[in-house]
Simulated assay, not measured.
Amino acid sequence: MPGPKDLDPSSSPRAMIGAELRYARERMGLSQTELGEPLFVSGSFIGQLESGTRRMQREYAVQLDVILRTDGFFTRHCETSAKSRYPEHFEEEAEAETFATSIRHYIPLLIPGLLQTPAYSAALFRAYRPTAPDSEIEELVEIRAKRGRLLDDPTKPLLMVVLDEAAIRRPVGGPAVMAEALRHVAHLMRRHRIIVQVLPFATGAHAAMGGALKYMEFADAPPLCFVDGLDTGKLLDDPATVARHALTFTLLQVSGLSSAHSLALIESVAQDYDHEEQPS
């Protein structure tokens, strides 16, 4: 029987819990699929818990302590890993993207959160919460800005975005805010940090008319998809569903402008917003 595993004290709580889960499962001689069966989850879900890609929920922690005979370890520690500053429907997705090696994202009407400027985010949050105090809006903007720092790493994750033309034409926050927001996207494109394609109005009907999607890949776990709507969202791990969403994103890319033409359009629209700001 293998000896106790040394845990890295610098690891995140979820990484530590995941490492302990893998150790306890292997100690019991169970595969990921076998461990998932009594929890009514897939083997890939167990793999995502072990890699830290997904946060352990208390309902699973309690059952795992019984199945793996871990004397309440997972129940005690899952509360630590559950702390999040994100809305409940979004927290798992936001945490998962920090582990992703690549992210593919499409939103019909917005510039994605990872690419937003503070002023653009503030305009959105104010529209969502017209009576909220300024302090609440400022906190939400700071949380979103911290997510954007994921792109401070020069190489990972690989971020591919299909940006709907509606997102660059709708003047969120006014012309000055939009000009700054689009120049930020263009700057990241020119630095070769992100890959962006604009899905033009001329495309007509397309594969994602039903809403937004995000497809994430990981180094040591199966891919995940996140679909969301108004104050709702769901992380999906069913292989067939994930594969279908991957195909949907590919179809969007095929329908979009090339990166070069997309960059030219984004910068041209930013310039148009600048002209709107100039006094006549």
Rank of each mutant, 00 (worst) to 15 (best):
G210I: 13
E165Y: 08
R191G: 02
V196F: 09
P112C: 05
R126D: 03
M160G: 07
S31G: 11
R190L: 09
Q271R: 08
P4K: 08
L114A: 04
Y273V: 06
R126Q: 13
L64W: 10
D237C: 03
T232F: 12
S84V: 09
I195E: 15
V242C: 02
L199I: 09
E92H: 12
Y128E: 10
A205I: 14
E217C: 11
E97P: 00
D164Q: 03
R193I: 13
A179S: 15
Q32T: 12
A15F: 02
P133A: 06
L163E: 05
F99C: 00
Y23A: 08
T80A: 13
S121V: 10
P9S: 04
L199C: 06
D6R: 09
G148C: 07
R76A: 15
S255W: 05
R191N: 11
K234M: 13
S42R: 04
T98F: 06
H192L: 09
I168F: 06
E26M: 10
M16G: 02
F201I: 06
L68A: 05
R193L: 15
Q116P: 03
Y120G: 00
A94M: 14
S81N: 07
V62A: 05
R22Q: 11
M216F: 06
K214Q: 13
P2I: 12
Q271N: 04
E59W: 13
M1P: 08
D8T: 07
L182A: 03
E138K: 09
G233Q: 08
A166I: 08
R144K: 13
E139P: 00
A240W: 05
T241D: 14
L263C: 04
I111Q: 05
T131A: 12
I17A: 02
L247A: 04
P87D: 04
S10M: 10
T53K: 00
T232Y: 10
E79L: 06
F90M: 07
A221M: 10
A123C: 04
L263R: 01
V254T: 14
G211S: 10
S135W: 07
L199G: 00
E26N: 11
E79G: 00
A212Y: 11
P108L: 11
L110H: 12
S255A: 15
G72P: 11
P130K: 03
L109Q: 08
A260S: 13
F226Y: 15
E95I: 06
E139C: 01
V161Q: 03
E20W: 09
E139M: 05
I266N: 02
E136L: 14
A264F: 03
R25N: 07
S262G: 03
L188E: 04
A15I: 10
G72L: 10
R54Q: 07
K214L: 12
P9F: 06
P38Y: 12
T80W: 12
V162P: 01
A15E: 15
Y60W: 15
D238Q: 09
E136R: 11
T101P: 01
A145S: 15
R144D: 06
F99P: 00
P154D: 07
A264V: 09
